[in-house]
Amino acid sequence: MALDPQLTAMVVPLAEVARIEEVLSRLVDETGGTHSLLLDKSGQVVASHGDANRQDTTALGALIAGTFASSREVAKLLHEKEFKVLFQQGVRENLFIALIGEQWILTMIFNKETHIGLVKVLVKKASEELLDVLGRVRQNRRMRDDVLGGNFHTSMEDTIDLLFRD
């Protein structure tokens, strides 16, 4: 099911975040990788699991999503719809990146202790589970006000006025 393009916010409910974290944590455990991240294609980090010292997940999210968006344009030039997975190999760390339902990006960071074949198989399995979660999140018709509270917009405007001034 495609996402309504006019939709302006995706609400990921508590239970689904727990499910995502479980999938990410299992992926790290079973592959022996160092970190797994679930990103929205806009670059925002939905959830992350692994190395607790990792402080740079926000920047990682922006850059990986940028890489993926760029590869999509390359695919179009080659008359491909998109590249489903990307692999980046370093001396110590490697990245395996997979697209989920044209909305999310699953990223696995692993080192030479982990075999790429295992990562491929387990990322595919995790992707299927996350696709189910995404399907449920897309069905989620909870009103934004139920989540944010009725006065959220007013409070937010006050905060913006306070912070963003010359």
């Binding site: 302006t8 609400v11 508590l14 806009s42």
Partner: peptide, 8 residues
Amino acid sequence: MALINVAA
């Protein structure tokens, strides 16, 4: 699209 993470 904005992302609202209810858990976090």
